[in-house]
Lab assay of single mutants.
Amino acid sequence: KLLSSIEQACDICRLKKLKCSKEKPKCAKCLKNNWECRYSPKTKRSPLTRAHLTEVESRLERLE
């Protein structure tokens, strides 16, 4: 599967780190437990900047 097509777990399953069936409108866990089942939009991760990478590398060197 391509990364862009990976389905996201519902908010509660993601928060509780449960295996989500990803069914809509309610996944199996939410249906069974009568929880409100919501699927928040995916958040875009910002790409690493060179400055951040350099900072992490220098912190790693100090720890070694």
Score class of each variant (00 low, 15 high):
Lys44Ala: 15
Lys19Arg: 14
Pro47Trp: 06
Glu64Gly: 05
Leu18Tyr: 10
Trp35Arg: 11
Leu53Cys: 07
Lys16His: 00
Lys22Pro: 04
Glu23Ala: 14
Val56Phe: 00
Glu57Ser: 06
Pro47Gln: 05
Leu2Trp: 12
Lys16Val: 00
His52Tyr: 13
Lys32Val: 11
Glu55Arg: 09
His52Gln: 06
Ser21Leu: 03
Ile6Gln: 13
Leu31Ala: 15
Ser40Met: 07
Lys32Gln: 12
Lys19Asn: 05
Gln8Ile: 08
Asn33Ser: 15
Lys16Thr: 00
Lys29Phe: 04
Arg38Glu: 15
Asn34Lys: 13
Ser46Leu: 00
Asn34Arg: 12
Ala28Pro: 02
Val56Thr: 10
Asn34Cys: 15
Cys10Asp: 02
Glu64Ala: 05
Ser40Leu: 07
Cys13Lys: 02
Lys44Ser: 09
Arg14Trp: 02
Lys19His: 06
Lys42Thr: 10
Cys37Leu: 02
Lys44Pro: 13
Arg45Ala: 01
Leu53Asp: 00
Ser21Gly: 10
Asn33Val: 07
Leu63Tyr: 06
Arg50Thr: 04
Lys44Asp: 05
Gln8Tyr: 09
Arg62Asp: 02
Arg59Pro: 02
Glu7Leu: 10
Ala51Glu: 08
Cys30Ser: 02
Lys17Gly: 00
Ala28Tyr: 11
Arg59Val: 01
Glu36Gln: 09
Ser58Thr: 09
Leu2Gln: 15
Arg59Asn: 10
Lys32Cys: 09
Leu18Ser: 09
Glu55Ile: 09
Leu63Ala: 04
Leu53Tyr: 04
Arg45Lys: 08
Ser58Glu: 15
Arg14Val: 01
Pro41Trp: 04
Leu60Lys: 09
Ile6Glu: 10
Glu36Met: 12
Cys27Asp: 04
Glu61Phe: 12
Leu18Phe: 03
Lys17Val: 04
Cys37Ile: 03
Arg62Glu: 06
Ala28Asn: 11
Cys37Glu: 00
His52Arg: 09
Ile6Leu: 12
Gln8Ser: 12
Ser5Gly: 10
Trp35Pro: 03
Leu3Thr: 08
Cys10Asn: 06
Leu53Phe: 03
Lys32Asp: 07
Lys16Gly: 00
Leu15Asp: 11
Ser21Phe: 00
Ser40Thr: 10
Leu53Gln: 00
Ser40Asn: 06
Ser58Lys: 10
Pro41Asn: 07
Ser58Leu: 11
Ser5His: 11
Tyr39Asn: 03
Lys19Thr: 07
Leu48Asn: 02
Ala9Met: 00
Leu2Asn: 12
Lys29Asn: 07
Lys22Ala: 02
Cys13Ala: 01
Arg45Gly: 01
Lys42Gln: 12
Cys13Pro: 02
Cys10Phe: 02
Leu2Arg: 09
Leu63His: 00
Cys37Tyr: 07
Thr49His: 06
Gln8Asn: 12
Thr49Leu: 03
Glu61Ala: 10
Arg50Trp: 03
Lys42Ser: 09
Pro47Asn: 01
Arg45Cys: 02
Thr43Met: 11
Glu64Asn: 07
Leu31Gly: 14
Arg38Phe: 14
Ala28Phe: 08
